[in-house]
């Protein structure tokens, strides 16, 4: 009779190479789900946030209510937000995406609006003097100048979304959060630590990637500094 294998899995150690090699597929699937949930949510948030911010800028009376609603949404804790959406979406990935969209939307609307407001009036007048119509002014002058502020918001929204996806484990769609949740119930230390570290790695990688994109999109900010 052979005894149980005496490896780091059997000893339930925090750091375990054996875990990485034997559960590679599970980890990959979880990372993939994590990336999908984050990516889709932030993209939908961005698509909704740009027009909202532009409208709030055009009609000043709407800025107050828009900002008030976003503040209220952002104050609601993530677990409560997912729970409030349960009657609408049931136990589905859409529920997690919808919750995350609301959070990213909040951050993005605030930042894009701040960016649009920071466009100097002289710049706007110069563009008008050159014969720019309102649409062309918005698309080629105001929005590009708001990119740095918008990207700052996008980075915060993305990093927050990566971390909030884990709470989606409550409905079974939490990416790496699922592994943390099941690891908690079985006291599986290596799984909890590996999944947690991967979450942070994804967040940092996304942040660096977006910073790179921001640099590419706004070459003028670097030229001004050098």
């Amino acid at each position: 009779m052979t005894g149980p294998p005496d490896d780091c899995l059997a000893r339930n150690e925090w750091i375990c190479g054996e875990y990485l090699s034997t559960r590679r597929q599970i980890l990959l699937d979880a990372v993939l789900q994590h990336l999908q949930l984050t990516g889709i949510s932030v993209l939908i948030g961005l698509v909704l946030a740009v027009p909202l911010a532009v409208l709030a800028r055009r009609w000043r009376w709407s800025a107050g209510p828009v900002l008030a609603v976003t503040t209220i949404l952002y104050t609601i804790p993530s677990l409560a937000m997912f729970s409030l959406l349960l009657p609408v979406y049931g136990l589905s990935a859409s529920l997690v995406v919808a919750g995350l969209v609301l959070y990213s939307l909040t951050l993005l609307v605030r930042n894009i609006l701040a960016g649009l407001r920071a466009v100097p009036e002289e710049t706007r007048q110069a563009a008008r003097g050159m014969g720019y119509g309102p649409i062309r002014l918005l698309l080629t002058v105001e929005l590009p100048l708001a990119v740095p502020a918008a990207m700052a918001g996008l980075r915060v929204a993305t990093v927050s979304a990566v971390s909030l996806v884990t709470v989606g484990a409550i409905v079974g769609f939490g990416g790496l959060g699922n592994l943390i949740y099941s690891g908690m119930n079985t006291y599986f230390k290596a799984q909890v630590l590996t999944a947690s570290v991967l979450c942070v790695v994804i967040a940092v990688a996304a942040d660096v990637l977006l910073l790179g994109i921001q640099r590419l999109l706004t070459p003028w900010t670097r030229a001004a500094r050098s």
């Binding site: 971390s163 943390i180 690891g183 979450c199």
Partner: peptide, 9 residues
């Protein structure tokens, strides 16, 4: 960047 849930567990 650090998930609250991960730290709790």
């Amino acid at each position: 960047a650090i998930p609250t849930f991960a730290v709790l567990v």
